[in-house]
């Protein structure tokens, strides 16, 4: 069963897609995390990635981050994709899909909004124009309740 609202988001420790430092979900405990699974062969990801770049820029001062996990079996394809669609948030690489399996994702892209305590608040499968408005509303609500 896919990770659902109320579940503790499974932690992971993955290498960066660019070969940089390892990335763990637990590093962002205390922040709101928008975790996004994507791959270079996923058509809607060409729409969703630029939207998430805007999201990350808009909330750069908030306790928030977009965190992405690339699922290309050949990571260099993901790297090539990011040259065309550069991003401003950390991207981890999970070529064997083990983390995708632990979240049991149902589509591509697939994303999860995670609260500061590490709990899944929203699971979102696919991406259509207009989805970001709904996602942003959930993020704003979560940031507001975290600030109170």
């Amino acid at each position: 069963m896919a990770a659902e609202p109320g579940d503790i988001a499974p932690d992971f420790n993955l290498p960066g897609l660019d070969g940089g430092d390892e990335i763990s979900l637990s590093d962002w405990r205390g922040s709101v995390v928008y975790l996004d699974f994507w791959a270079s062969w996923c058509g809607p990801c060409r729409i969703s990635l630029p939207e998430m770049v805007k999201l990350q820029s808009a909330l750069s001062d908030a306790p928030f981050t977009v965190l992405a996990i690339n699922l290309d079996e050949e990571p260099h394809k993901g790297v090539r994709f990011l040259k065309r669609f550069p991003v401003n948030y950390p991207v981890a690489s999970n070529p064997d899909g083990s983390v995708a399996a632990s979240y049991n994702i149902t589509g591509m892209p697939n994303s999860f909004l995670i609260d500061p305590e590490g709990r899944v608040v929203l699971a979102h499968s696919g991406f259509r124009p207009g989805d970001m408005k709904i996602i942003r509303a959930h993020i704003d609500e979560l940031l507001q309740s975290a600030a109170e």
Partner: peptide, 11 residues
Amino acid sequence: VPSWERGVLAR
């Protein structure tokens, strides 16, 4: 096929 393993099918 799990959704994250459909790279070949998407070609």
